[in-house]
Computed example of a mutant assay.
Amino acid sequence: MPEVIFNGPAGRLEGRFQPAKSRSAPIALILHPHPQFGGTMNNQIVYQLFYMFAKREFAVLRFNFRGVGRSQGEFDHGSGELSDAAAALDWVQTIHPDARACWIAGFSFGAWIGMQLLMRRPEVEGFISIAPPANLNDFSFLAPCPSSGLIAHGDADKVVPVKDVQALVDKLKTQKGIVIDQTTISGANHFFENHVEELIGVCSDYVDRRLAAITDAA
């Protein structure tokens, strides 16, 4: 898992990258929680998602948004962070130009950034949004949502109430041509304390199902 430094819009960005063995392996980009509330690429959920995708032989990158860790720049309320995520995806695609597909996984603030990015990148074929902050950020840009994905949250989340996430899911499910899987983890708070293993299991099962469906269709 080499440390990497690549150029972003506001300076250098720090990341951790696991290359894939296959030239055509899919890419996974993992986005961390809110930088102003302690979010970094070393967040436990981000870390576990990284290894979950690496185990399935994706080319995987997690990185620190601007102003976090050794990444240059300063917090930009989402706009700059979206540009950082786009630059990160560009960087992985230069390393793996033959990648057949791309996935984006984000936690909390990272889920908001990730869902904005998938609107701009048609090569994204799947997403995982964990505790998307539907009450704190505007998700109206998902009109329509271009790819199928998983939304996971906890029923004891005091930061993002279940009803707000449910309203987002209900809106997305009305769109034709995509499938939104939803999992609500009983007893889990916003940070999934004591429930991280269960959460990663849900995400693993979802990715495995999607990959198996692609294989069956080939």
Rank of each mutant, 00 (worst) to 15 (best):
K176C: 09
L89K: 00
S22M: 09
N42I: 07
T94D: 14
R210L: 13
F141G: 10
N194M: 06
N189F: 09
R209N: 12
I128N: 12
Q166M: 14
V169I: 04
Y47D: 14
G149C: 10
P26I: 03
A85Q: 04
P33Y: 00
L13A: 02
S24Y: 10
I30L: 00
D205N: 09
E197P: 12
Y47K: 12
H195K: 03
D164M: 13
A212S: 14
N135P: 02
N137I: 07
P33T: 00
L49H: 02
D216P: 04
L117Y: 05
A131M: 12
H77F: 15
R120E: 12
W112T: 05
F58C: 13
I5R: 10
I180P: 02
W103C: 10
N43L: 04
F65N: 11
I200P: 15
G8L: 00
F50W: 01
F6V: 02
I130D: 05
N135I: 11
A28F: 04
G154A: 05
L172W: 07
S148C: 10
M119D: 05
Q72S: 05
I178C: 06
R12H: 02
I95Q: 15
I5A: 12
H77V: 10
S148G: 14
P33W: 01
Q72G: 03
L61S: 02
N64Q: 06
F127R: 01
